[in-house]
C-alpha cells in the first residue's frame, strides 16, 4: 500500500453566506482508502488542530443511497466512470495531485454547509407525480399484469437512478432532465403507469421548471457523470411524452378537461 501526499482545494461555506476555497494539505493518505475515507482522515486532523471539519453528505458508502455529492476536479463523483464518490478510491490519484473538491453546484441545490447541498427539489418533483396512485391493499394479484421482459428491463434501467443529483451538477445548464426523465420514464414505460401518464408527465416537468433548474441543451454531460449510467434516451422519451401530453392538454383530450383537473 502506497501513501499519497495531496493538496486539496475545498469549498467552505456556511449556509447562504459567500463561500471560498480553503487550501488543505493531505499528506500520507493510504491509496486503498476510499475518497470519503480520505475526507474522514482530513477531518480527524482538522478536529485535532481545533479547526472546523468539512461537512459533506454521505451515508451508505456502497454507492446506492445517493447521499454523497461532491464535485471532484470539476466532475461530480470524480473522474471514474459509473462510480459514486464513496466508491471512488484514492489509488486513482497520484501523489502530488491537486484535488478540487466542490459541492454539487446549482441554484436549485442551495448549499447547506461546505459540500452539503439541499436536494429537496428532487423530492418535490417526485411529489408532483412520481407515483402510481394505488392504495395499500387494493393491488391486484402480481402476475395478473403480464409485463414483457424487455419492458421490465427497460423500466429497471430507468429505475436504477439513485437520485444523487450528479446529472444536475454536471450539466452546463444545471438541468434536471436526466433525473426527471428517468423517473417519469420508469412509470410511463410500465402498464401500471399508463392511467396517470399525462398527468404525471405534465406535473413533474412543471415542478422541475418551478424549481429553477436549467434547460437541457443535449450535451449529454449528465449521462457521462451518472454513477448509474442512465441513458439520455430517457430524455428523448420525456421530450416525446411531454409533447404528446401537452398537445392533449391543449386540445382537451383525455379526462383532464372534463374533470377540470390539471396535471399540476
Amino acid at each position: 500500500m502506497a501513501l499519497l501526499n495531496l493538496h486539496l482545494k475545498v469549498w467552505r461555506q456556511n449556509g447562504s453566506q459567500p463561500g471560498h476555497f480553503q487550501d488543505i494539505e493531505a499528506p500520507e493518505i493510504p491509496d486503498h482508502a476510499s475518497f470519503l475515507e480520505m475526507m474522514d482522515i482530513v477531518n480527524e486532523r482538522l478536529i485535532a488542530n481545533g479547526q472546523d471539519p468539512i461537512a459533506f453528505d454521505h451515508d451508505c458508502r456502497e454507492g446506492i443511497c445517493g447521499a454523497c455529492s461532491m464535485t471532484i476536479n470539476g466532475m461530480p463523483h470524480g473522474p471514474e466512470r459509473a462510480t459514486t464518490t464513496c466508491q471512488l478510491h484514492m489509488r486513482k490519484f497520484r501523489t502530488g495531485d491537486t484535488i478540487w473538491i466542490e459541492p454539487f453546484r446549482a441554484r436549485s441545490f442551495p448549499v447547506v454547509k461546505d459540500l452539503m447541498v439541499d436536494r429537496g427539489a428532487f423530492d418535490r418533483i417526485m411529489q408532483a407525480g412520481g407515483f402510481v396512485s394505488i392504495r395499500t391493499g387494493s393491488a391486484p394479484e402480481g402476475n395478473s399484469i403480464p409485463i414483457g421482459k424487455d419492458v421490465a428491463d427497460a423500466a429497471m434501467d430507468a429505475a436504477a437512478c439513485i437520485g444523487c443529483g450528479a446529472c444536475v451538477a454536471s450539466c452546463k445548464n444545471a438541468s434536471a432532465m436526466l433525473f426527471v426523465s428517468a423517473k417519469v420514464g420508469q412509470l410511463n414505460t410500465l402498464p401500471q403507469g399508463q392511467p396517470e401518464r399525462q398527468r404525471r408527465t405534465l406535473g413533474m416537468v412543471r415542478q422541475m421548471d418551478a424549481e429553477g433548474f436549467g434547460n437541457c441543451t443535449n450535451q449529454y454531460e449528465c449521462e457521462a457523470a451518472c454513477p448509474k449510467e442512465i441513458s439520455v434516451r430517457w430524455i428523448t422519451k420525456l421530450n416525446r411524452d411531454y409533447a404528446v401530453a401537452a398537445v392533449k392538454d391543449i386540445v382537451g383530450a383525455g379526462r383532464q378537461q372534463a374533470g377540470g383537473e390539471g396535471g399540476d
Binding site: 421482459k149 419492458v151 429497471m156 412509470l187 410500465l190 401500471q192 403507469g193
Partner: peptide, 8 residues
C-alpha cells in the same frame, strides 16, 4: 402495482 420493476 406501484411500478416496482421486478425481474420478469
Amino acid at each position: 402495482a406501484q411500478g416496482v420493476p421486478f425481474a420478469r
